[in-house]
Lab assay of single mutants.
Amino acid sequence: TTITITINGEELRIRGDHEEIHKILKAWEEDHNDEEIVRLIRELAER
Rank of each mutant, 00 (worst) to 15 (best):
T1D: 09
T1I: 15
T1H: 15
T1W: 03
T1K: 15
T1G: 09
T1L: 14
T1P: 08
T1Q: 12
T1S: 11
T1A: 12
T2M: 13
T2S: 09
T2W: 15
T2Q: 07
T2D: 09
T2C: 06
T2A: 10
T2P: 04
T2E: 15
I3F: 02
I3W: 01
I3D: 01
I3A: 10
I3S: 02
I3E: 02
I3C: 07
I3V: 11
I3R: 14
I3T: 05
I3P: 01
I3H: 07
T4R: 09
T4D: 03
T4I: 14
T4V: 14
T4P: 01
T4Q: 05
T4G: 03
T4M: 09
I5E: 00
I5N: 00
I5T: 01
I5K: 00
I5M: 02
I5D: 00
I5R: 00
T6H: 11
T6D: 04
T6E: 06
T6S: 08
T6N: 14
T6A: 06
T6P: 02
T6Q: 07
T6G: 02
T6F: 10
I7A: 02
I7G: 00
I7N: 01
I7E: 00
I7L: 08
I7P: 00
I7S: 01
N8P: 01
N8V: 03
N8E: 06
N8C: 07
N8W: 06
N8G: 11
N8Q: 09
N8M: 09
N8S: 05
N8T: 03
N8Y: 05
N8R: 08
G9K: 04
G9S: 03
G9R: 02
G9E: 04
G9Q: 03
G9L: 03
G9V: 01
G9T: 03
G9F: 04
G9I: 03
G9C: 02
G9M: 03
G9P: 00
E10T: 07
E10A: 06
E10I: 10
E10D: 06
E10H: 07
E10P: 01
E10S: 05
E10G: 04
E10F: 04
E10W: 03
E10Q: 12
E11C: 08
E11T: 13
E11M: 11
E11A: 13
E11V: 12
E11I: 14
E11R: 10
E11K: 15
E11S: 12
E11N: 13
E11H: 15
E11P: 05
E11Q: 15
E11Y: 05
E11D: 10
L12P: 00
L12C: 04
L12K: 03
L12A: 03
L12H: 12
L12Y: 09
L12Q: 04
L12V: 10
L12D: 00
L12E: 01
R13E: 14
R13F: 13
R13M: 15
R13S: 12
R13Y: 13
R13Q: 14
R13K: 15
R13C: 06
R13A: 07
R13P: 05
R13I: 15
R13H: 14
I14K: 00
I14R: 00
I14N: 00
I14W: 03
I14Y: 02
I14A: 03
R15F: 15
R15G: 06
R15K: 10
R15L: 13
R15E: 14
R15D: 10
R15M: 15
R15Y: 14
G16C: 08
G16A: 12
G16Y: 05
G16K: 02
G16H: 03
G16D: 04
G16N: 04
G16M: 06
G16I: 08
D17T: 14
D17H: 11
D17E: 11
D17V: 07
D17F: 11
D17G: 07
D17Q: 10
D17Y: 07
D17W: 07
D17S: 15
D17P: 13
D17M: 09
D17C: 05
D17R: 08
H18T: 13
H18S: 12
H18Q: 07
H18C: 14
H18D: 08
H18I: 12
H18K: 11
H18N: 11
H18W: 13
H18L: 13
E19Y: 07
E19M: 08
E19V: 11
E19A: 11
E19T: 14
E19K: 14
E19R: 10
E19G: 07
E19C: 06
E19Q: 10
E19D: 14
E19H: 11
E20H: 07
E20A: 10
E20R: 04
E20V: 12
E20L: 15
E20K: 07
E20M: 13
E20T: 14
E20C: 03
E20Q: 10
E20F: 14
E20P: 02
E20D: 13
I21H: 01
I21P: 00
I21N: 01
I21A: 03
I21K: 00
I21L: 13
I21Q: 00
I21Y: 03
H22R: 10
H22D: 14
H22A: 13
H22M: 10
H22P: 00
H22C: 13
H22F: 06
H22G: 08
H22E: 12
H22S: 11
H22Y: 07
K23P: 05
K23Q: 09
K23W: 04
K23T: 06
I24A: 03
I24K: 03
I24N: 01
I24D: 00
I24P: 00
I24Q: 03
I24M: 07
I24H: 02
I24L: 14
L25T: 03
L25I: 12
L25V: 09
L25C: 04
L25N: 02
L25S: 03
L25D: 00
L25G: 02
K26T: 10
K26Y: 05
K26C: 05
K26R: 12
K26L: 14
K26E: 08
K26V: 09
K26G: 05
K26S: 10
K26I: 10
K26A: 13
A27T: 08
A27F: 07
A27Q: 13
A27I: 10
W28D: 00
W28C: 03
W28V: 03
W28E: 00
W28P: 00
W28K: 01
W28Q: 02
W28G: 01
W28S: 01
W28T: 02
W28Y: 09
E29K: 04
E29L: 13
E29A: 06
E29V: 08
E29R: 04
E29T: 09
E29S: 08
E29Y: 11
E29G: 09
E29W: 10
E30L: 08
E30C: 03
E30V: 11
E30W: 05
E30A: 13
D31T: 10
D31I: 06
D31G: 14
D31F: 09
D31C: 08
D31W: 11
D31V: 06
D31M: 13
D31Q: 09
D31S: 12
D31K: 11
D31H: 14
H32F: 10
H32K: 15
H32M: 15
H32W: 11
H32Q: 14
H32V: 10
H32C: 02
H32N: 13
H32L: 11
H32Y: 08
H32E: 10
H32T: 11
H32A: 12
H32I: 09
N33W: 14
N33A: 09
N33I: 14
N33Y: 15
N33P: 06
N33K: 06
N33F: 15
N33E: 10
D34P: 11
D34Y: 13
D34S: 14
D34N: 14
E35C: 08
E35K: 09
E35P: 15
E35W: 09
E35L: 11
E35R: 06
E35A: 13
E35M: 13
E36M: 10
E36V: 11
E36S: 09
E36L: 12
E36W: 13
E36A: 14
E36D: 13
E36C: 03
I37M: 07
I37L: 15
I37N: 04
I37E: 01
I37Q: 01
I37G: 01
I37R: 02
I37F: 12
I37S: 02
I37H: 02
I37A: 04
V38A: 06
V38S: 05
V38M: 13
V38I: 15
V38L: 14
V38Q: 12
V38F: 04
V38D: 04
V38G: 07
V38E: 09
R39C: 04
R39F: 02
R39A: 09
R39Q: 09
R39D: 05
R39M: 04
R39N: 09
R39H: 07
R39L: 04
L40N: 04
L40W: 01
L40D: 02
L40Y: 01
L40F: 02
I41F: 01
I41H: 01
I41E: 00
I41A: 04
I41T: 01
I41W: 00
I41Q: 00
I41L: 15
R42F: 04
R42L: 12
R42V: 07
R42T: 09
R42Q: 12
R42S: 07
R42K: 14
E43C: 06
E43I: 08
E43K: 08
E43S: 09
E43Y: 02
E43M: 11
E43Q: 13
E43W: 02
E43A: 06
E43T: 05
E43N: 07
E43L: 13
E43R: 05
L44F: 04
L44G: 01
L44K: 01
L44I: 10
L44W: 05
L44P: 00
L44R: 01
L44Q: 02
L44S: 02
L44N: 02
L44T: 02
A45W: 03
A45P: 01
A45M: 12
A45S: 07
A45H: 09
A45L: 13
E46N: 06
E46I: 06
E46M: 05
E46C: 05
E46L: 05
E46A: 12
E46S: 11
E46D: 11
E46G: 06
E46Y: 03
R47S: 11
R47W: 01
R47N: 11
R47H: 09
R47Y: 03
R47A: 12
R47T: 10
R47E: 09
